[in-house]
């Protein structure tokens, strides 16, 4: 564990809590993409299957459980409890366009052709693009509430911090995983446009509104 990874995990945890609290407190999931949330539930389910096969640490197990449970809780709140507030007219990104290519790529490029390993790789590829329906939703409506922006900033920062963690681990531990690194780079690059708007607008107290 190094500081970048810890900050990355905490940033991820913060993002999840912010999103759940926002939905719970406002009794609404307006502006949130249910498609992205379903994709995240798929991501964490397929990645953390090793919960039953490999023990790494209490921290690792605890965080994995939190991420899986929170992903399903979010999907439940959006599609069942606060279904009436779900913005499905704008949330039109096709999930299969991300799931199918990620699965094919995982079958082609992986560390080992076993079920668990391919599913782990699939989850890494899918996570890198899972935010696209959310970014698509924001671009369609042309704006995002501040709290949604904070959620996206924390979620985007998480993989960015992991990139620093991988640089650190490369030098300090001689450890690197190209699949995770390349996917992490893609994932972070997808947020760049959003990061720019967040820093130039939201942090100055303005609403995130896209130029017409």
């Amino acid at each position: 564990m190094n500081i970048f990874r810890l900050l990355g995990d905490l940033s991820h945890l913060l993002a999840i809590i912010v999103l759940l609290l926002k939905i719970w407190k406002t009794r609404s999931c307006a502006g949130i993409s249910g498609k992205s949330q379903i994709l995240f539930a798929i991501v964490y389910t397929s990645r953390y299957l090793d919960l039953v096969t490999t023990y790494i640490s209490a921290y690792n197990t605890f965080m994995k459980l939190i991420f899986v449970v929170a992903a399903y809780a979010t999907v439940y709140l959006m599609y069942i409890k606060f279904k009436a507030t779900y913005d499905h007219n704008h949330d039109t990104f096709r999930m299969e366009f991300l799931v199918i290519p990620s699965l094919i790529l995982a079958l082609l490029i992986n560390h080992e052709l076993t079920v668990l390993e391919v599913l782990w790789t699939f989850s890494i590829y899918l996570e890198s693009v899972a935010i696209l329906p959310q970014l698509f939703l924001v671009s369609k409506t042309g704006e995002a509430e501040s709290i949604t922006s904070h959620y996206l900033f924390a979620l985007g920062s998480y993989r960015g911090l992991y990139l620093l963690n991988w640089v650190y681990r490369y030098y300090a531990e001689d450890h690197y995983d190209l699949i995770a690194i390349v996917a992490g780079l893609v994932q972070t690059v997808l947020y760049c446009d959003f990061f720019y708007l967040y820093i130039t607008k939201v942090l100055k107290g303005k609403k995130l509104q896209l130029p017409a």
Binding site: R5, I56, N60, M63, K64, H111, E117, Y162, H175, D177
Partner: peptide
């Protein structure tokens, strides 16, 4: 194995 080390992250 190598995989234990590879997948020690979240």
């Amino acid at each position: 194995t190598i995989f234990d080390k590879l997948h020690d992250e979240l």
